[in-house]
Measured scan of single mutants.
Amino acid sequence: LPHTAVCLVCGEAGKEDTVEEEEGKFNLMLMECSICNEIIHPGCLKIKESEGVVNDELPNCWECPKC
């Protein structure tokens, strides 16, 4: 993702460097949905019932829970 990318919900950049544990890092890193192209911190999504499908081949790419 470009350095200028920010979260659609909170308007902040990736914050994964501020935590140690892997789950915390994931919730604070910016992810781009391969379907709707929205860039968001997974932790900013209010959807709890399902998780997005992470694409292991492309960094910061997933199918968000909304899609």
Rank of each mutant, 00 (worst) to 15 (best):
L1P: 15
P2Y: 15
P2R: 15
H3D: 14
H3W: 02
T4C: 04
T4D: 07
A5Y: 15
A5T: 14
A5R: 13
V6N: 09
V6M: 08
V6A: 02
C7D: 00
L8W: 10
V9H: 05
V9A: 11
V9N: 15
V9C: 01
C10V: 00
C10N: 06
C10S: 05
G11L: 12
E12P: 03
E12A: 08
E12G: 13
A13V: 13
A13N: 02
A13D: 08
A13H: 04
A13S: 14
G14I: 04
G14A: 04
G14D: 11
K15A: 03
K15E: 07
K15D: 00
E16D: 02
E16Y: 01
E16P: 11
E16L: 06
E16K: 07
D17A: 07
T18S: 09
T18L: 11
T18D: 03
V19Y: 05
V19M: 10
V19S: 08
E20F: 05
E20D: 06
E20R: 12
E20C: 09
E20K: 14
E21Y: 11
E21L: 05
E21Q: 05
E21G: 14
E22M: 14
E22H: 09
E22G: 11
E22Q: 13
E23R: 10
E23K: 14
E23P: 05
G24H: 15
G24S: 14
G24Q: 09
G24Y: 14
G24P: 03
K25P: 01
K25T: 04
K25V: 03
K25L: 03
F26W: 06
F26D: 04
F26P: 08
F26Q: 04
F26G: 06
F26V: 08
N27S: 09
N27E: 11
L28T: 15
L28Y: 08
L28K: 14
L28H: 14
L28G: 10
M29N: 04
M29I: 02
L30D: 00
L30G: 07
M31D: 02
M31Y: 05
M31K: 09
E32R: 14
E32A: 06
E32I: 10
E32W: 06
C33E: 02
C33A: 00
C33N: 03
S34H: 11
S34E: 03
S34F: 10
I35F: 02
I35P: 00
I35N: 05
C36I: 03
E38S: 10
E38N: 04
E38I: 09
E38V: 08
E38M: 13
E38T: 02
E38C: 05
E38P: 01
E38Q: 09
I39Y: 13
I39A: 11
I40P: 01
I40Y: 06
H41Q: 00
P42S: 02
P42N: 00
P42D: 02
P42E: 03
G43E: 07
G43C: 04
G43K: 06
C44K: 01
C44T: 00
L45P: 03
L45T: 09
K46M: 05
K46S: 14
K46I: 05
I47T: 13
I47Y: 11
I47V: 12
K48N: 15
K48F: 10
E49Y: 07
E49K: 09
S50Y: 15
S50C: 13
S50M: 08
E51C: 13
G52T: 09
G52H: 09
G52V: 12
V53T: 13
V53R: 08
V54F: 14
V54Q: 14
V54C: 06
N55H: 13
N55F: 03
N55D: 11
D56T: 13
D56E: 10
D56C: 06
E57A: 13
E57K: 14
E57P: 05
E57Q: 09
E57H: 11
L58D: 15
L58S: 13
L58R: 13
L58I: 08
L58V: 11
L58C: 13
N60P: 09
N60H: 09
N60L: 05
C61V: 15
C61T: 15
C61F: 05
C61Q: 09
W62F: 11
W62P: 08
W62I: 00
W62Q: 02
W62Y: 05
W62T: 04
E63C: 10
E63Y: 06
E63L: 10
C64E: 01
C64V: 00
C64F: 01
C64W: 01
C64H: 15
P65D: 03
P65S: 07
P65C: 04
K66N: 03
K66R: 08
K66G: 06
K66F: 12
K66C: 01
C67S: 00
C67G: 00
C67K: 02
